[in-house]
Design a protein around this nucleic acid. Structure first.
Lengths: 152, 152
DNA sequence: ATCGAATGTTTCGATGTCGAAATATATGGA
DNA sequence: TCCATATATTTCGACATCGAAACATTCGAT
C-alpha cells in the first residue's frame, strides 16, 4: 500500500497519512452503513439528521446544515426524503416565513430511538480495534487536523 | 462539539473519536476538492483513477475498483465521464473480451502530470497542521483501525 | 412607504455512489 | 460439443452531494 508518488520526504509522509486517513473512513463506513440500510432503511445523512433532531429538538434547515456539515441544497434533499417517509415534518416559522423548522414525527422518534443504540453499538465495536488511549489520541489528532485553517 | 449521546463510557469514547475522524476528513477534503475542481475540472474519483493509471499503467476496470475502493458500477460511471472528456481510453482485452482495459490518453497524461503535483502540494500543506511524528501516528492508528475486521 | 441588499430555502444540472439485475464472455465438465 | 457456472462489465433506480441560479421573505436606509 505504498504511495507510488515521487516527491519530497515531507510530501510522502503527508500523502501516506492522508491516504490512510481516507481509507480508514471508507473501511469503517463500509462496515456500518450497509447494516444501517438493511436493518433500518436509513442512510448516513438520514440518521445524522434524525440524531440531531433527537438530541437538539426542532431545528431550522440552516442549523441542520451546520450540524451535519453539508450544503443547503443537500439538506433540502435529505429532509425531502425523510418527510416523504414520514419521519420528519417541516413547518414554516410564523415570525420569519423564510425559515423551515424541521421536527421529528412520532414515527421518526420511534425509529431513531430503535436505530441509534444499535448503530452506536456497531461504532463502538468497530472502534474497539483501537485501545481506549489510542482512540483518544486519534480523536486529538483528527481534531487538530480538522481545526487547522478553519477560519480559512 | 460534544457527543450528546447518552451511553456507556466506552460508547462515548468510541463515538467521540469516530465523529472527529469523520469530520476531519470532511474538513480536509472540503479544502482540497473545490480547488481541484476549479483549477483542473477534476473530482476526487477522477484524479484517483488518473493517478492510478499514471503510476501503474493500463488497468482493467476491476483492478481500478480495488485501487480506488469503489464499486464496479461506480467505476463504470467515473471512467465513462473521463472517456467522454478524452482523458482515458477503453479497449477490450483481445484474449478475454469481457475485460475493459483503461489507459491514459495523451491529454489525460498531460493533465495528471500538471494537476498531481499541485494537489499533493495542497495535501502536504494541509497535513502540515500536524507535526511529522503526529502524521506518522495518525497513519498508524488509521491503518490499524481500517485493517480491523478486514478479512470478514 | 419603498426599494435594494441580505438571508433562508428550493430548483437545476452535473457527478458520485451503491446494490441488484441484466448482459457478454469464458471455462470446465458431461 | 453443449451447457451450467463463473467472471467482468453495464444498466437501472435510488440517494447523496455540490454550486449556481432562482425564489421568497425580511430588513435597513432613504
Amino acid at each position: 500500500m505504498p504511495t507510488h508518488y515521487q516527491g519530497t520526504t515531507e510530501e510522502i509522509l503527508a500523502l501516506d497519512a492522508f491516504i490512510k486517513l481516507n481509507r480508514s473512513v471508507i473501511a469503517v463506513q463500509g462496515r456500518l452503513l450497509p447494516a444501517l440500510q438493511r436493518e433500518f432503511g436509513l442512510t448516513e445523512s438520514q440518521i445524522a439528521v434524525l440524531e440531531a433532531l433527537k438530541h437538539l429538538g426542532p431545528l431550522q434547515q440552516g442549523e441542520l446544515c451546520q450540524k451535519i456539515l453539508r450544503s443547503g441544497s443537500n439538506v433540502t434533499t435529505v429532509v425531502d426524503n425523510l418527510e416523504r417517509d414520514g419521519l420528519v415534518q417541516r413547518s414554516r416559522d410564523e415570525s420569519d416565513r423564510r425559515i423551515q423548522v424541521v421536527n421529528l414525527t412520532e414515527k421518526g422518534r420511534e425509529l431513531v430511538d430503535r436505530a441509534l443504540p444499535v448503530h452506536v453499538g456497531r461504532i463502538t465495536d468497530t472502534m474497539a480495534a483501537l485501545e481506549p488511549e489510542e482512540q483518544r489520541e486519534l480523536g486529538r489528532l483528527c481534531r487538530k487536523l480538522g481545526r487547522a485553517g478553519e477560519s480559512k
